[in-house]
Design a protein around this nucleic acid. Structure first.
Lengths: 156, 156
DNA sequence: TTTAATACCGAGTAATTTAATAGGAATTAA
DNA sequence: TTAATTCCTATTAAATTACTCGGTATTAAA
């Protein structure tokens, strides 16, 4: 029941991109250095975000990535689902079906549990927009007096 | 972000135990057969439930397992945490601390996301009691006319 | 008193997934 | 032309998962 580094690193990268964006594209090498993530690995994560239409890549020198839409329109749920796949606690194609084809009922019964967990996770992450995290990040950074320290603790 | 078979099988086993319990202990071999789970593996799952004080083992012939308390007092959260460990999306010992020791704020910012996911998962599973699943199971079984079919679909 | 049924315990293992690393091709601003 | 960049695919070491296996201890019942 844990997110992988895809989700953890990827969300950090998205906050970094959104915070450090001006009118120019942000190069992955910069994000990688700021966040202490390997460039090669970060490329793979961002490829998923691009595939989901959350960021756009700009190729060539002075290229980089930009948000594909305003941060107010990108939810943490969009980001995490792009990185991790669906956030349901079980892989069950009929989680959302209404019929109950199970003979013994235990499976059907636990299905309601999985559904409720799934819904609560998705509600939680869809209720947080990237812009919320950007605002929080800027607030914390202002309080800290722009004391910029290199990341070492990667547990979260 | 998936539960393992420990959580999936283990919750099914707990519902089975609670449904099929009379005044006698229920042998794991019976649960294993009804649920289509290997006995050896089921033993390992139930060991965790016992360690958490959710079930009691009764050794010897005619032995088995019984709920350690009424099903009304056992939440799905208790069961899943016993089987899976904590249900937080990240392993972060300071998720619940109030100070923000991070230099760059991105880690601190994403921590709020992990906290909200964690809280929503735990709220969801703590709000469902084993007795709720037992009631639901009996209802479904009554509707189906006790058409008992061997489990084959193990995806949920 | 024996037997059979059961919980309890620890080691081992194949398959899968994760978390990268590595190296190159394509594109483009300077 | 060059350097910076995205883009793409393959490989790999380590960790985790999902078991299997083989036993020991305990106890009710025959």
């Amino acid at each position: 029941m844990k997110l992988t580094t895809k989700g953890r690193y990827g969300l950090r990268a998205m906050v970094d991109l959104a915070v450090n964006t001006d009118d120019e594209a942000v190069a992955l090498s910069q994000i990688a250095e700021r966040q202490g993530i390997s460039l090669n690995y970060l490329e793979q994560l961002v490829a998923r975000l691009k595939k989901s239409g959350i960021v756009n890549g700009i190729r060539g020198a002075q290229g980089g990535y930009v948000l594909a839409m305003p941060a107010e329109e990108i939810s943490v749920g969009d980001i995490l689902r792009a990185l991790e796949g669906d956030l349901s606690p079980v892989d069950c194609y009929e989680l959302n079906s209404t019929d109950t084809p199970c003979g013994s009922s235990d499976i059907c019964v636990t299905k309601y549990v999985w559904k409720r967990i799934s819904d609560s996770i998705n509600d939680a992450v869809d209720g947080i927009m990237l812009s919320d995290l950007v605002a929080e990040s800027k607030k914390v950074q202002a309080e800290a007096g722009i004391r910029q320290v290199k990341q070492t603790n990667q547990t979260c």
